[in-house]
């Protein structure tokens, strides 16, 4: 869905470029939390940057694989849903933006004046749409790996027509040709629902594969570890998570003391 130069006029391209620039700046801030910080926060650790870089490279590679969707038409992965689920929405916007930048500069794919349009459609719109759908479904569905994969499928499926709608909106504002907007909308959404099915299959397979070996590295599903924490909290003592730790004491000995107290209580009552 890479828009070339000349589809959208220069004023709207420039304005959309400004929107994309602000979104990237916001994402650079938001990605700090997703990529770094303390234990249990985002990907964390030294591995965060190489893993997020790999997600960008993988999306670039997968985008080269156009699959047929209808007579004489093909589609390829956009990657917004995949990035959002694996590394988080802010980092995901950056991943897709890096891919689009490389494609525009090195491979003459997607116009340079249209870079803002492309980042807006495929990163700024598709990534948050996918992430909101994904998180909504994960909360609704029963917990488990299958639910994460299913939610990935639907999120990816929805994200592609969402990007097509965004393009249609920009075309309505600043299209260089005079085509009836209803026709553009119907044609764009129609073909991109089909492409969305391919996007959904690739996204679900990839997220499913990572869930199978390292579920802790799937950003969008990181709270699936919570049941274990709850189980230990109810079986033992309530964990003092987030509570200010008194000077001279660390969290772990405090927790151990509480567990010890709990055990003493049990023994006393037995």
């Amino acid at each position: 869905m890479h828009v070339p130069d000349g589809f959208i006029d220069l004023p709207v391209s420039a304005a959309t470029g400004a929107v994309a620039a602000v979104a990237v700046a916001v994402s650079l801030r938001g990605a700090r939390r997703e990529l770094g910080g303390g234990p249990g926060e985002g990907l964390g650790g030294e591995r965060a940057a190489p893993l997020a870089g790999l997600v960008a490279a993988f999306i670039f590679a997968a985008q080269m694989l156009n699959f047929p969707v209808a007579a004489g038409t093909s589609g390829h992965l956009l990657g917004g849903a995949l990035a959002a689920i694996l590394v988080g929405p802010y980092t995901g916007v950056l991943c897709v933006s890096v891919v689009l930048l490389m494609q525009g500069v090195l491979f003459a794919d997607g116009g340079l004046t249209a870079l803002g349009v492309n980042i807006t459609d495929m990163a700024v719109v598709a990534v948050p749409v996918a992430y909101v759908v994904f998180r909504g479904l994960v909360k609704m569905l029963p917990r488990g790996r299958g639910a994460v994969t299913a939610a990935s499928f639907v999120a990816a499926l929805v994200s592609v027509p969402a990007a097509a709608v965004a393009f249609t909106g920009l075309y309505a504002l600043g299209g260089t040709t005079d085509v009836e907007i209803g026709k553009v909308f119907a044609a764009m959404v129609g073909v991109h629902v089909l492409i969305g099915i391919g996007e959904a299959v690739i996204t679900a397979l990839t997220v499913g594969a990572v869930m199978a070996v390292r579920p802790d590295l799937v950003y969008g599903a990181r709270d699936l570890r919570a049941p274990l924490r709850l189980a230990s909290a109810t079986a033992g003592a309530p964990a003092p998570a987030g509570a200010p730790v008194p000077a001279g004491a660390t969290a772990v000995p405090a927790a151990r003391r509480q567990a010890q107290d709990n055990q003493d209580n049990k023994e006393a009552s037995a």
Partner: peptide, 21 residues
């Protein structure tokens, strides 16, 4: 791809320009 096909079918690409690169 989807966009290229729609653009060609409906004439959205009539004023498309060559890529600078």
């Amino acid at each position: 791809d989807g966009l290229e096909k729609v653009a060609a079918d409906h004439g959205i690409d009539e004023k498309a320009e060559d890529h600078a690169a």
